[in-house]
Design a protein around this nucleic acid. Structure first.
Lengths: 248, 248
DNA sequence: CGTTAAGTTGACAAGTCTCAAGTTAAGTGG
DNA sequence: CCACTTAACTTGAGACTTGTCAACTTAACG
């Protein structure tokens, strides 16, 4: 999961596909995917991947880095809908959208593989298995939003923070981003507040409290979960065993 | 949209397909859908359609009535994730789930068309267009959850209620359930509270306030929007023009 | 007419937000 | 290498929204 110097490789030498978290594909499927791919793109930390109000002609798979999907109300209040990292497929909603849906912004520097939206149907048609996989990814994405909705709707501040820390740690760990119990944590407290539906100040105080309880540790942009059991119980958030994920 | 006396018809005489809100299908597609369908099912108001902790072997399309998807935390706090009505496709998430995901419960008496989950791949394979449609439905469903997450995370009580009233009214209206500006409204204040992430009492007070402002009217289980402009503005929630929906 | 679920209301408690003022950390240019 | 600037993070105080508790009313139903 280290950053490739010049962006993603051609699909047949894609580093992500060596990752056991992802489902293997046949050579034929790989060729179809490669033909579907239109290129790669790098986005700097903090810059937009997809503008909120403009439909994007591209679909993306995150190749490296962290990003997030969000929506803003007209007075500027912002809600982060979900975080995205390597392997996540973005922009599907727009394909079927009557109009604008959400924005996507890079947290770290991000590299992406891009696909032409208007050839999505072609992909379903020519390779139904890949269509099935895309549906798989859409369903997984929805499940994450479901979880976030439960969080915003029913958990209190400490529970929210506990849940999010475990969630982010687990997702990074799952695709091999953990190094001896530490995971890169590039998020600001503003990101966390926007994701949890809390104010920045209250997020800070809650974070502080859980840190003083020695439930987690944050050092130089790296996160370590000190007491996973406590965080899971507090957040009432338990990861189920995970199946390999399709990768488009 | 009146209730059929004995449950849904065979697909080739499906009343829903006469509804212009839904995408027309070819005869061949209709046959495939009919072969995919395993039967129909009636669920009484208040009864479970899918149990929260048990994976369901069935997928469903709602044929008539209102239902909702929900999740509960282990101490009983419940969050409604989205409301379901005629044409909505349910259970897809489970197909790809590592384990349990959400429960589904009937609000009114509900009739359903059921499909065998283990033949979903067959459907994608034999009729990619229908697979594409299912993805369409999944993406639309996710957009609704996105909206609900923004609501729970960033809107205050009055804004939440305004948004939900408009949302429910619009969805019912769209598939022809409106009668001279009135729409059936079978939800209790507990449903609304659970959907909005508010307490029952506060939901009641907020509802009352908006009613006294003459923004809407509720009479004998029927809802009328008196001031759509005010509710839309308050909820910062504007419906975009809608395309016909696929119907599986 | 009695029973039950749903809705209503007021009083008070608690959680979260806002405001305002720091402090720390990380650049950047002189 | 240091002074300056800026973004991120902290902290306390007080206001406000929302939640909880408890009692009561209304509507629906047998």
């Amino acid at each position: 999961m280290s950053h490739p110097p010049t962006g993603p490789n051609p699909c047949d030498r894609c580093l992500l596909r060596c990752n056991p978290a992802f489902l293997p594909v046949t050579t034929e499927e790989l060729h179809i995917i490669e033909a579907f791919r239109t290129g790669t793109r790098a986005v700097e930390a903090g810059r937009p991947v997809i503008e909120e109000d403009r439909p994007s002609p591209q679909l993306y798979t995150i190749y490296s880095g962290w990003a997030f999907r969000y929506k803003t109300l007209s007075d500027g209040r912002r809600q982060i809908l979900s975080f995205l990292l390597a392997g996540d497929f973005v922009g599907l909603q727009d394909e079927f959208a009557e109009s604008h849906t959400h924005g996507v912004e890079a947290v770290t520097d991000v590299t992406l593989c891009s696909f032409a939206r208007d050839r999505l149907w072609e992909l379903f048609h020519g390779q139904p298995k890949l269509g099935y996989h895309i549906t798989w990814l859409a369903a997984r994405e929805e499940k994450m939003v479901d979880d976030n909705l439960v969080t915003a709707g029913r958990r209190n501040a400490a529970e929210r923070v506990a849940m999010l820390l475990m969630h982010l740690y687990r997702r990074a760990e799952r695709i091999g981003m953990a190094r001896e119990g530490w995971v890169q944590f590039p998020f600001t407290q503003q990101h966390i507040a926007d994701a949890l539906g809390l104010s920045l100040v209250h997020t800070n105080k809650t974070l502080r409290r859980l840190q003083q309880l020695r439930l987690y540790k944050l050092d130089g942009g790296w996160l370590r979960i000190l007491d996973p059991h406590a965080l899971q119980t507090l957040g009432d958030y338990f990861e189920r065993p995970l199946l390999p994920t399709p990768l488009i």
